[in-house]
Amino acid sequence: MTRSALVWWGVAALVVAAVLGAVTSDAFGIDGTAVDVWWNGLMGQVRDPFVVDVAYVLNAVGGGWIATFAIPILIAVALVIARRWRAALFALLAFLVSAGLVQVLKHLFGRVRPEEMLVISDYGSFPSGHTANAATIAAVAVLLFPRVWMVILGVLWVLAMAFSRTLLSVHWMTDTIGGALVGIAASLLLGALLLPWAQSHGTISRARRGEDTT
């Protein structure tokens, strides 16, 4: 994907997320919650104990100190071990930008969460920080390692996280859509700035090293 394409798609994703947040928070005087209420009611009817237990696991993995510190650090360490320190820095910056955008939108819109939440969460329902984090992981992985199987795994991971958030009634469905868009936007816009640099290994070639020793 070209730099201009990364910019356009990144800006488009962020704009759509912002508009969705404004509509669902009633900033425009538009009732944007009908689909959310329907989906939330549906989730209340499909809470199989095993599926709920999986959702609890995703709740722990996708938020708190695990998502904020442990997962980004583990990803960065893995990339450094693979001698991709530039990619590691790119990934860490993507997580930082994504988390920052999530907090800005949460405080900008201040959307109220569903009343029947099964877990305790922080202020602001829109966008879903868990889903944004999952989308950031997926988008960074696809940008650094553009493979079809990576895209499939990334999509499945984001969908699983989004589904778990609504199953636990901690988010409305549109919150998870907004979160996915924010995570993608952060990764694409940062990629427009740093991706060619991040994809290079940042090492001196053997030929260059040979020249330097002669």
Rank of each mutant, 00 (worst) to 15 (best):
M1W: 06
T2S: 15
A5S: 14
V7R: 15
W8C: 06
G10M: 04
A13T: 04
A13I: 03
L14F: 06
L14N: 08
V15C: 02
A17Q: 01
A18D: 08
A18L: 13
V19N: 00
A22E: 05
V23C: 00
V23D: 05
A27E: 11
F28I: 09
I30W: 15
D31Q: 01
G32C: 01
A34P: 07
V35H: 12
V35K: 11
V37C: 02
G41N: 11
G41D: 14
M43V: 01
D48W: 12
D48H: 15
F50V: 10
D53W: 12
V54G: 03
A55S: 06
Y56F: 10
V57N: 08
V57M: 11
N59T: 11
N59S: 13
N59I: 05
A60K: 14
G62W: 01
I66P: 07
I66S: 07
T68I: 08
T68F: 13
F69M: 05
A70R: 06
P72H: 05
I73P: 08
L74I: 15
I75P: 00
A78H: 11
V80L: 09
V80D: 09
I81L: 11
A82T: 12
A82P: 12
W85G: 10
R86P: 04
A87G: 10
A87E: 06
A88M: 07
F90T: 09
A91S: 13
L93N: 05
L93R: 09
L93E: 07
L96S: 14
V97Y: 09
S98P: 07
S98L: 12
A99R: 04
G100N: 13
G100H: 06
V104L: 13
V104I: 03
V104E: 13
L108R: 12
G110L: 09
R111L: 05
V112K: 13
P114L: 04
P114F: 02
P114E: 08
E115V: 07
E115M: 09
L118G: 00
V119L: 10
I120E: 09
D122K: 15
D122L: 14
G124K: 02
P127T: 02
P127L: 04
P127N: 09
H130W: 05
T131A: 02
T131E: 00
N133E: 10
I137V: 11
A139Q: 00
F145A: 02
F145D: 05
R147M: 01
R147H: 06
W149Q: 15
G154R: 05
V155N: 03
A160T: 02
F163P: 04
S164W: 02
S164P: 04
R165W: 13
W172R: 03
W172F: 06
M173N: 10
D175T: 04
G179T: 03
A180C: 08
G183Y: 00
I184W: 02
I184N: 04
A185R: 03
A185I: 01
A185S: 09
A192L: 01
L195Y: 05
P196Q: 13
P196L: 09
W197E: 15
W197G: 14
S200I: 03
T203N: 14
T203C: 07
I204R: 15
I204L: 12
R206G: 10
R206V: 15
R206Q: 12
A207Q: 11
G210M: 08
D212W: 13
D212P: 13
T213L: 15
T214R: 15
T214F: 12
